[in-house]
Computed example of a mutant assay.
Amino acid sequence: MTSRMTHGAGSVPERRYRTSGWLTFAGTLSLVVGAFNIIDGLVALFRDNYYLVGENRILVFDYTAWGWIWLILGIVQIAVGAGILSGKLWARAVGVFFAVVAAIGHLAFLQAFPLWSVLTIAMCVLLIYALTAPPAGSTGR
Rank of each mutant, 00 (worst) to 15 (best):
V96S: 07
F46A: 12
I104C: 08
L89H: 05
G81E: 02
V76P: 06
F97L: 15
A102D: 01
A65F: 14
V118Q: 03
I78V: 15
C124V: 02
F46K: 09
I38D: 10
N37C: 13
G105M: 04
I128A: 04
L127R: 06
G54W: 06
I121F: 00
T132Y: 06
V60L: 14
V96L: 05
L59R: 12
W90V: 10
W68E: 07
Y50C: 03
I39M: 11
W90E: 00
W116I: 06
L85G: 13
G54S: 15
I58D: 01
A108N: 09
L115R: 06
A91P: 01
I58T: 03
I104N: 01
G105I: 09
E55Q: 14
P114E: 10
V76R: 05
I58M: 11
F97K: 02
Y51P: 02
F109G: 01
I128M: 04
L45H: 03
F113I: 01
A82C: 11
L110V: 10
A99H: 04
T132H: 07
F36M: 14
L89M: 05
A130G: 11
L127P: 05
A82P: 00
T64Y: 02
I75S: 07
V118K: 01
I104T: 09
G137Q: 04
F61K: 06
G105H: 00
F109V: 00
L110H: 07
D48P: 04
A130D: 09
